[in-house]
Amino acid sequence: MSYRYSPAIAKLINAFAKLPGIGKKTAQRLAFHILDDKKEDALALADAIREACASVRLCSVCCNLTEEDPCDICRSATRDRTRICIVENPRDVAAMERIHDYRGLYHVLHGVISPMHDIGPEDVKLRELFVRLRNHDEIEEIILATNPTIEGEATALYIARLLKPSGIRTTRIAHGIPMGAALEYADEVTLSRAFQNRQEV
């Protein structure tokens, strides 16, 4: 018969194993690491989790994760309030912010339309987007920055379709060859897409 962990340890291991990218073995390692010594570090971690869970919520304007509502970006006086960039999740906001070029606002969908997973337009933060557009007529451009996956494309197309009657300028980010990458390493689909969307120089 195999060795059985005591209930508290088993519970901890199972909790770790639910995290993305953590398997059974890693979960065990983490659990024992926490219990081994430095209990104060572990308790600090527990506090950090508790605190984040309690204070972080969705921004009522853009649906990004924030502690203060509205979030930093939505409150900022220096940002361009005529543009909204639509992304799939909060991580994408962080990615876009790293380029520093974009000074507009965001809207986080928290998912993409996918009938196979029972996610329809009502299940992502689209309603919030349209309410926002209705209340803010200063918005001139919507930038669709969902991922270039089947579902990301479908969601972008869907939003573009709904926006059409409003006359708001709608753009889609370009797909192409990563900078600094050699052409020979690009996969065929990326390369052909980049080729189709070539530009005059």
Binding site: G120, P121, A154, Y158, R161, L162
Partner: peptide, 12 residues
């Protein structure tokens, strides 16, 4: 906001 589900079918 979501005119009718047919709009979704159009996209696919």
């Amino acid at each position: 906001i979501f005119p009718d589900p047919a709009a979704q079918l159009d996209i696919w």
